[in-house]
Amino acid sequence: MSAQTAITGARIFDGDLWHDDRVLLIEDGKVAGIVDNDEIPATAVRTSMDGCRIVPGFVDLQVNGGGGVLLNEQPDVDGIRTVCAAHARFGTTALLPTLITDTREIAIRTIAAGVAAREANVPGFLGLHLEGPHLSIARKGAHDPKLIRPMEADDLARTIEARGRLEALLMTVAPENVNNEQIATLADAGVTVSLGHSDSTYATVNAAVAAGARMMTHLFNAMSPLGHREPGMVGGALDLGHINAGLIADGFHVDAISIGVAMRAKKGPGRIFLVTDAMSPIGTDMTSFTLNGRKIYRKDGRLTLADGTLAGADIDMISCVRFMHEQVGLELEEALRMASLYPAEAIGMTGRKGRLTHGHDADFTVLDDSLDIRATYIGGKAAFVGQS
């Protein structure tokens, strides 16, 4: 039997329940169990986390950058490694580096980097999110309209081939530039198809979901709103039970009251889950950066183009959890699930991520009473340890 690690002294949230006066047991990068103190194997290495809380590591399905790196600008293994390490400081143990609409060349380089990152076992790397270029000009947001275009046969083939070489692949598309046959082909190949940056009607959304789409990208943002005569994209996200929807909880992209209304309205079994939509400044003191040759400015918690258009978010996942708990009023346990269990469900990885139960990856975050990050573990190994 290989050596085991026993994490002692902390209150443990397994994704469903809290465990007091118990121990998190880890073996071979997996959770071996949550046991009583007298059940710790004599050979186990003990690590004390007295007075802290252990929660499932955060899963972020939309991360454009971090640590000074933007995936579009550095689509290589080192870039992915830097982004993953930057977000580990904020409790994220698994993420999808996200490519914003760009050229075919950059998309090809990004996919190759993702495959290489998987082969190199980069800590925290889960797969890729391709956000575009097959979006709607009318709802482009910060995406460069010159690079937005319809999906063609080579795009479809390249995406399907990439899915075969990656553990997870998420793709944001708009029905304006991707048809339902293409959505069905992607879904059948195991690609998680998300609808976003679209001005579609409810009926169009419903048809795309019937074809295989299972997600909405950043609920409320860059999509047709809920209207009294036309439910739009937002109405589809809330009413269609098989849809999961990402949400940027920074107070700028969506008001706290609107978030609360959406949470009460969402039909299951699909869930609303948290994403950061973070850009390169996370974990740095950068005040600006470049995307597709355009300067983006960082000020007062916002990232914007020169015309004021929001361009990604300046927030980390633990801050999103705090916002949902403190500003929206969710129970802490539900806010934590929105950052871990629900995104894992959205991409079909509940057997590995989002919980701390037997057989799950030993990905967890150690919090103090103020919900500050004390440490982050990926596969049972410390990826970040803060100052005590």
Results as ranks from 00 to 15, higher is better:
242 H>K: 15
332 L>V: 12
5 T>M: 08
306 A>Y: 05
124 G>I: 05
5 T>K: 15
323 F>W: 07
385 V>F: 12
229 R>Y: 02
303 L>E: 04
223 M>Q: 08
167 E>V: 01
140 K>Q: 14
145 P>Y: 11
289 F>Y: 09
95 L>R: 01
245 A>T: 03
23 V>M: 05
156 L>Q: 04
279 M>K: 03
184 A>H: 06
341 L>I: 09
329 G>L: 05
30 K>G: 13
375 A>K: 00
261 V>R: 14
94 A>E: 01
224 S>W: 04
107 A>G: 13
164 G>Q: 13
331 E>V: 12
31 V>K: 01
147 L>C: 14
195 L>V: 10
217 T>F: 07
97 P>K: 01
87 H>G: 06
360 H>N: 14
378 I>H: 05
377 Y>R: 11
23 V>T: 08
135 L>M: 10
46 R>C: 06
369 D>E: 15
214 R>W: 03
270 G>Q: 00
217 T>D: 10
269 P>T: 09
181 E>L: 15
20 D>T: 10
25 L>Q: 05
151 M>R: 07
277 D>L: 03
182 Q>P: 05
367 L>N: 11
172 T>N: 10
315 I>T: 11
145 P>Q: 10
377 Y>I: 14
219 L>F: 06
15 G>Q: 01
336 L>V: 12
370 S>A: 15
200 S>N: 11
357 T>V: 15
309 T>R: 04
282 I>Y: 04
24 L>A: 03
141 G>D: 11
52 C>N: 13
348 G>M: 02
271 R>H: 13
383 A>P: 03
199 D>F: 02
243 I>P: 00
44 A>P: 02
284 T>V: 09
204 T>D: 09
114 G>H: 07
306 A>K: 08
176 E>R: 09
24 L>W: 09
34 I>N: 05
241 G>F: 08
252 F>Q: 11
225 P>R: 10
123 P>S: 10
151 M>T: 08
202 Y>Q: 09
343 P>S: 09
103 T>R: 15
311 A>R: 04
147 L>Y: 12
361 D>F: 02
177 N>Q: 15
323 F>D: 00
7 I>K: 05
336 L>D: 03
133 P>R: 08
323 F>S: 06
303 L>K: 04
264 R>K: 15
384 F>Y: 14
255 D>E: 06
227 G>I: 06
336 L>C: 07
22 R>D: 10
287 T>N: 04
290 T>W: 12
378 I>D: 02
69 V>W: 00
171 M>L: 08
320 C>N: 03
127 G>L: 06
23 V>G: 04
227 G>V: 07
329 G>K: 03
201 T>E: 12
102 D>T: 13
300 D>E: 14
181 E>A: 15
66 G>V: 05
353 K>G: 10
44 A>K: 01
371 L>S: 14
362 A>G: 03
128 L>H: 01
139 R>E: 13
145 P>W: 08
162 A>R: 00
383 A>C: 12
230 E>P: 01
61 L>D: 04
44 A>W: 02
103 T>G: 13
203 A>R: 07
357 T>D: 12
368 D>Q: 15
166 L>D: 03
107 A>S: 14
91 G>K: 02
